[in-house]
Design a binder for these strands. Structure first.
Lengths: 187, 187
DNA sequence: ACCTGAACACCGTTCAAGT
DNA sequence: ACCTGAACACCGTTCAAGT
C-alpha cells in the first residue's frame, strides 16, 4: 500500500487479489487458499504474508463493495421517505451479500468477532445502516423497539436463506415481507 | 435395523450414534467423521458402511426430533387459533434447529437437494408445516400470497442468524417480528 | 524485505485385506 | 456380512532457508 512497498510485493498482492476474486467467485467465501496461491503463481507463504487470515483477504476483496454501500446509505439519508430509504438500503445489502456464495455467513461472523480482519469494514457498514434506521424510527415508520443488530441479522439471514434456493427473487420477497413486520402500526 | 442384523453390527451402529451425538453437540453439524469413528472405537470404514454420507448419519441422529415436530404439527392442527398455531410451530422449528450448531444449514441444504440422505425427513417436516400454513391462510390470518417454502426459509434463516449472536432470544424476537409481516391485513 | 515450499497435523473417502 | 486401517488426494498454517 505505502509508496515504499517493493514493486514485486505490490505485484504479488495484485496477483493474489485477482486470483482470489476468481476462486471466490467459483467456490465461495471458503475457497481454498492454496488454490488461490496457485492461481496467482505464488508460494502459499506469500499469500499468508500479504493476508494473514482469510478474513483479511476478504476484506481487501470487498473493500470497494463496502464503500459503495456506505456511500449509498449517506445519499439515501437525504431521500424523502425514511422508511423506503431503509428498505432500499437493506435490499442493496442483501443483494451485495449475494455477490459471493458464503458471504452472508462471512459478514455475520465478522460482525460477531471483533478480532476478525473483516470486523471493521462490517461494523462500519452496519453503522451506516444505523443512521437510516434511526431516521426511519424517528419518522415513525419503523417500530421503535427494533434494534440495529436485529435488522442487519434479519437481512443477512434472509440473504443466507436465498443462497440455498432456486427462486432468484427469494431474498427480495422475504425482505419485503419482513419489512411489513418492521413497520410501525398505529392501532 | 432388521432383526437379522448381526449383533456386532447393531452394537457398532449404536456406538457410532452415541459418538456422533457427542461430537455434533461439541462441534456442530460438520464435526469430523474421523473423530466420531475414533470416539466410537470403530474403524472409519465401519462408519461409512453404516452411514454412507454425513447426511445419512444426521438423519439417524435427528429422527426422533423430526418425529416430535411432526406430531406437534398434527396436534396444533386441532388448536383454536390457526395463526397462533402456525406461529407456535415455527417457533418450535426454530428452537429445534438450534439444537446443534450448523443444523439450520444442514436442513436448508437437505431441502434443496433431493439426493441428500436428509431430504426425506426434512421434506416431511415441511409438509407437516404446510397443513398449518394452509389452515392459517384459509382462516385469513396469514397472507395468501406467501409460500410454504418461503415460510420455512424465513424461519431457518432467522434461526441461522440467531446462531451467530449473543442474544439468546434473537430467533424468537426476529420470528415474532417476521410474523407481523406474514399477517394478513384488511386495509 | 520479501519469497518459497517442505513439513506438520489434520480432513473426507475408498478399497484391498482380513474375520 | 461385516470390520479394519492404509492409501490417496486434498486442506490450513508455520517456518527454515533462500534472494
Amino acid at each position: 500500500m505505502s509508496q515504499t512497498t517493493r514493486a514485486d510485493a505490490r505485484k504479488n498482492r495484485d496477483l493474489l487479489l485477482a486470483a482470489a476474486r476468481e476462486a471466490v467467485a467459483e467456490h465461495g467465501t471458503d475457497a481454498s487458499l492454496r488454490d488461490i496461491a496457485r492461481r496467482a503463481s505464488v508460494g502459499i507463504g506469500t499469500l499468508y504474508r500479504h493476508f494473514p487470515t482469510r478474513e483479511a483477504l476478504l476484506e481487501a476483496l470487498l473493500n470497494a463493495n463496502f464503500d459503495v454501500l456506505h456511500a449509498r446509505a449517506d445519499s439515501l439519508l437525504a431521500s424523502p421517505d425514511p422508511g423506503d430509504a431503509l428498505m432500499t438500503w437493506l435490499g442493496e445489502l442483501a443483494a451485495g451479500a449475494a455477490t459471493y456464495q458464503g458471504l452472508p455467513e462471512s459478514i455475520m461472523n465478522a460482525l460477531a468477532d471483533e478480532e476478525s480482519g473483516l470486523h471493521a469494514s462490517c461494523a462500519q457498514m452496519r453503522s451506516a445502516g444505523g443512521r437510516l434506521l434511526e431516521r426511519a424510527q424517528q419518522a415513525g415508520s419503523i417500530r421503535s423497539d427494533v434494534t440495529l443488530s436485529e435488522v442487519i441479522a434479519l437481512t443477512l439471514g434472509l440473504a443466507w436463506a436465498a443462497e440455498r434456493s432456486e427462486a432468484s427473487d427469494l431474498a427480495a420477497r422475504l425482505l419485503s415481507t419482513a419489512m411489513y413486520g418492521l413497520a410501525a402500526r398505529d392501532h
